[in-house]
Nucleic acid binder design. Structure first.
Length: 485
RNA sequence: GGCCCCAUCGUCUAGCCUGGUCUAGGACACAAGAUUUUCAUUCUUGCAACACGGGUUCAAAUCCCGUUGGGGUCACCA
């Protein structure tokens, strides 16, 4: 089995693209086949080298590995379409020689005019095939007039063509509705349809997995492949990914680039897991998978036919689960690396007290869906904090808790993992408050928020002085001299 | 508009091929409760769907036809 992912480098990889890559990869990996990366850069205007680089990086980050590609070569190279012009020219020549293709001298303006007229009459736009029958004389004349020809593929026969799709079974198209189409531009670059067909043929691709948007193009590809004498691969057209309203993906969510998700601190495995769930299910109730588990369980037969709506809430849940289920040390390492990389914690600050920072990072593990969320959460340890609900601090019960807290903090030497419990007990006893009545004011005074990480951990990290400072800020509007940090 | 694809809770989906076991299962989200002396996690419960209309059949979410709705595609873009 030989499978390929063939992006065009005209932009960054987003969820839609990446999901196609992933499904191809999973299909290959599950069947111990080859996964080939080919770059379709025939659109010289829009293709950019930096996008190619980014595709390598993003795919690599996701854990998708190719065995042949532009960067590592392979037996069927080159893997950049822009470097394969010789093949295209050879096959175009062959087709022309065999009478399966012909030169077309129609100009884009002419074509466009025809199309508009057909549209106006309510007809399906289709090329008139008028250059099919040009005599040598006529061609020579056009040539003299300086018109460079494109090359059209001759679509013959009025029959039907059936695509055997692995996801949709048999899909039949009437041949008469596809007009002769261009396979090579006047500048001798191939069009997408031609390049795809020739490359898939030449590279020995056995299974083509791509978006449903290509389903109606497939007859063209099959026609070309047959004309060139290639073995036609099996096809699988995956359902497209839609935006929240069912509209095509917009840049806001799903079309956000893979790179952006990486910057936000999503784990690649979580992203793959979620993308796989968009249109595929294992058949049982399982939803959480590592990449290896996906490879093991994946089946193209279990890909659904209908479009899937991208749901960020579910992505966040999957991602959060991956974070919670990973090894503790691995988590500590990853999140620290992220915080440092993204400068959420500066190198200097970190070096002054690495353990303190490690401790902070650790306590957020249970309420993270991606690492970048720590940036906001860490504000809780800034020198000054804002109170989400200052009113809460004003009730009589809350005042007594805070007052008791200050008094006790003055009496004790230290707050650490051994002493927090006793401290809390004392506050409880002296203030007469318990449960929520006790913790809510404390939480508000120490963190300024209603929700957050475990309060004991927060107090330990703040330390006795930090706690005292925050309590006094609530009590007197500011910390007493000499007691702040 | 022609052609093609699709149609189960708000969302992702299981079930459909091989009708009965489906008063339609799971998950996210949402709501309530339990655990947590707080928060989060976790657990339990609840809410919520077979688009519509015709057939076929003893029996249809499952098969057939139509309608409606959504998507795709009709380029010298991929």
């Amino acid at each position: 089995m030989r499978v390929r992912f063939a992006p065009s480098p005209t932009g960054f990889l987003h969820i839609g693209n990446a999901r196609t890559a992933l499904f191809n990869y999973l299909l290959a990996a599950h069947n111990k086949g080859e996964f080939i990366l080919r770059i379709e850069d025939t659109d010289r205007e829009r293709s950019k080298p930096e996008y190619i680089e980014q595709i390598f990086k993003d795919l690599g980050w996701l854990g998708i590995r190719w065995t042949e590609g532009p960067d590592i070569g392979g037996k069927y190279g080159p893997y950049l379409q822009s470097e394969r012009t010789k093949f295209y020219k050879d096959y175009v020549k062959k087709l022309i020689d065999e009478g399966k293709a012909y030169y077309c001298y129609c100009t884009p303006e002419e074509l466009d005019k025809d199309r508009q007229e057909q549209l106006a009459q309510g007809l399906t736009p289709k090329y008139s095939n008028k250059c099919r029958t040009l005599s040598d004389e006529e061609m020579a004349e056009k040539h003299r007039a300086g018109i460079l020809p494109s090359v059209r593929f001759k679509v013959e026969g009025a029959g039907e063509l059936t695509v055997d799709d692995m996801i949709r079974d048999e899909v039949t198209f009437a041949l008469e509705q596809v007009g002769d189409f261009i396979i090579m531009r006047p500048d001798t670059t191939p069009t997408f349809h031609f390049a795809v067909a020739v490359d898939d043929g030449l590279m020995g691709i056995t299974h083509v997995v791509r978006g449903e948007d290509h389903l109606t193009n497939t007859p063209k590809h099959i026609l070309i492949m047959k004309a060139c004498g290639f073995k036609v691969p099996r096809y699988a057209h995956m359902p497209l990914t839609m935006g929240p309203g069912g509209e095509p993906l917009s840049k806001r969510l799903g079309a956000m680039s893979i790179h952006e998700y990486r910057k936000l601190g999503y784990r690649s495995e979580a992203l793959c897991n979620y993308m796989a769930l968009l249109g595929w299910s294992p058949g049982d109730d399982r939803e959480l998978f590592t990449l290896n588990e996906l490879k093991e369980h994946f089946s193209i037969k279990r890909v659904s036919k209908s479009p899937a709506v991208f749901d960020k809430a579910k992505l966040d849940w999957v991602s959060g689960m991956h974070i919670r289920q990973m090894d503790e040390n691995e988590f500590a390492q990853e999140i620290l690396a992220f915080a440092l990389d993204e400068k959420i914690i500066s190198e200097e600050d970190y070096n002054t007290r690495p353990e303190w920072y490690a401790h902070i990072l650790r306590i957020f593990r249970n309420n993270l869906s991606c690492y970048s969320e720590i940036k906001e959460k860490m504000q809780l340890f800034d020198t000054t904090i804002e109170y989400e609900d200052a009113e809460l601090l004003k009730s009589e019960g809350a005042r007594s808790v805070i007052a008791a807290c200050e008094a006790i903090l003055q009496e004790i030497d230290v707050i650490d993992e051994n002493t927090v419990d006793n401290f809390l007990k004392s506050v409880k006893k002296r203030s007469g408050q318990k449960g929520k009545e006790l913790f809510a004011p404390l939480r508000m005074a120490f963190t300024g928020k209603m929700h957050g990480p475990d309060l004991k951990e927060v107090m330990i990290i703040l330390g006795r002085r930090g706690c005292l400072k925050r309590v006094q800020t609530v009590l007197y509007g500011e910390a007493k001299n000499g007691e702040g940090t």
